[in-house]
Design a protein around this nucleic acid. Structure first.
Lengths: 226, 226
DNA sequence: AGATGTGAAAGTTTTCACAGCC
DNA sequence: GGCTGTGAAAACTTTCACATCT
C-alpha cells in the first residue's frame, strides 16, 4: 500500500531507529513473531538469560537465518558474538505484537464454540480478556459466565460507544456471520477475529483474521488420501 | 521431491491424465481447494450448473488465474469456452481432499475446547464425525456426550488397534500435548490435528496440522498496535 | 466469441554466506 | 571464536497473457 520509505529522504527531522525498520512485514513474519514470543517466555521461565538465533530457531522448528531476518525487520535487538537477551527481546516482541497493552474484547455468539473461546486459558495468558459477551438467544441473554453477563446483540452498539471495544470475536453460525460483522463494524470496532467458515467482507480499514477449523481438518484428510 | 515430469519422456505406456498432474502441491493450494469445495457446494445449492474460474474466484476473493492454476495441478476439469460443471468439479475436489470417504476421528481431551469441537457442525457437514472421545479425568470418564461415551486414555491403544482411528484431535492442555501426541503415534494413528499452542514433534510419516487460536488474535493485536 | 490450461514474467519468501562487531 | 545483521541467490508463489479448444 504505502511506498517503502527506504528511498524517501528523511525530511522533517530524524525518525527513531526502531521505527525506521518497519517497511512492510509479511503475515508469516507476524505469525512467527507470536511463536518467538511464546518460546521466549518459556526460556525466561527456565531462567535462561541469553539466547542465540540458532537455539530460538531450533525450538520454533525453523532456520536461524529466518529468525534473524524476522527480527531485523523491527530493529537490532541482538549483540554480535553474544546473542539476544531473553527478557529484553521478549519485551520488544511483546511490544511489537501489542501485547503490552490491554485490548478490550467482545465475544459475539455464546454457543459451544463461544464458550470454549471464553474459557480459553491462552487468551487470558496473553492479555486478551473477554470483557463482553453478546447473543440473541433469549434463553442465554441475562445469564452469566464467570461473572460476565451475556447481553443482547442490540447492546453491542451502545456498549462499544460507551466502553470501547477493540476486538470482536465472531462465533455465530455461518448464516449470521456477515450480518454480525457488519454490526460490529457499524459499532466502530476496528478488528475482527472470525471463526465462521465464510468469507466476510468488511471495509479495508478494519482488520480481519479468520480461523477455519475445517480447513486444517481437510488438509489432513488430503494428506491421508494420497 | 519428485522431479517434474514435463521433460521426462513417456516410456512405458501412456499414464492416465488425471494422475499425471500431481507433481508437488503447495499447502496454500490445498487450503484454497477447501474453499473452492465450500463455494461449489453453495453454487450447487443455488442450482447453478456451470461456473467460470472468474466467478469462482470472485466468491473466493482471489484471481481467476489462481483458480485455474490450482485446479490444473490435479487435472483438466474444465471445458474451454464453457467453464466447469459445478457438480462434477465439486466431486473431483471432494475426492482430492479425501472428503468422499469417511474418516474415523478420535477426540483427545474432553474439556471446553474438546466439547466445542465435538459439537462443531462444520466437521459433521464435511464428513468428519468424532467417533471416540478420550480423557483422563475420572469425573468425565464413563459419562457420555450425545450417546458417545468418554473413555480413559488407556483405551486409546486398544480402540485404535481394534476399530481403527484415522485422525486424532489434540485438545488437551499444553503440558500434556506432546505426551498425548506420542501415545497417538504409538497407537498407529497417522494424522493429528493439534490445538495446543506448542510445537509437537512426531515422525515425518505422521501428518500434523496445528491450529493456534492465540496466533490469529496476536496478529490482530499487531495490526491494531501499528 | 468465450473460457480453459499453461509457459513465462513478476513478485514474494526463504536460505545462503559473509562482513562486521563482541 | 562466536553470533548478528544483511545483501545476494535460490526457491517458491502468483499473475500475466496467449495459444488452444468448444
Amino acid at each position: 500500500l504505502k511506498a517503502s520509505r527506504s528511498n524517501v529522504p528523511q525530511t522533517a527531522g530524524e525518525r527513531r531507529r526502531s521505527t525506521l525498520h518497519m517497511d512492510r512485514v509479511s503475515a508469516s513474519t507476524v505469525t512467527r513473531l507470536s511463536s518467538y514470543y511464546r518460546i521466549l517466555s518459556e526460556f525466561e521461565a527456565e531462567k535462561v538469560e541469553t539466547i542465540s538465533s540458532e537455539r530460538l530457531a531450533e525450538r520454533a522448528g525453523i532456520t536461524s537465518a529466518q529468525v534473524r531476518k524476522d527480527l531485523s525487520s523491527f530493529g537490532n535487538f541482538g549483540r554480535r558474538g553474544l546473542g539476544y537477551n531473553v527478557r529484553l527481546l521478549g519485551g520488544e516482541v511483546g511490544g511489537i505484537l501489542g501485547l503490552t497493552r490491554k485490548w478490550s474484547v467482545a465475544l459475539l455468539g455464546a454457543g459451544n464454540l463461544g464458550h470454549a473461546l471464553f474459557a480459553y486459558k491462552e487468551f487470558q495468558k496473553h492479555g486478551f480478556c473477554i470483557d463482553y459477551v453478546f447473543d440473541v438467544d433469549p434463553a442465554k441473554v441475562g445469564k452469566g459466565w464467570d461473572g460476565i453477563q451475556i447481553r443482547h446483540f442490540d447492546e453491542l452498539q451502545p456498549v462499544a460507544t460507551k466502553q470501547g471495544i477493540d476486538i470482536a470475536i465472531i462465533a455465530v453460525p455461518v448464516q449470521e456471520a456477515q450480518t454480525v460483522a457488519d454490526r460490529a463494524v457499524a459499532a466502530g470496532i476496528r478488528a475482527i477475529l472470525n471463526f465462521a467458515p465464510v468469507k466476510i467482507v468488511i471495509p479495508d480499514e478494519v482488520a480481519l483474521r479468520s480461523v477455519d477449523l475445517s480447513i486444517a481438518m481437510e488438509s489432513l484428510s488430503y494428506a491421508l488420501a494420497k
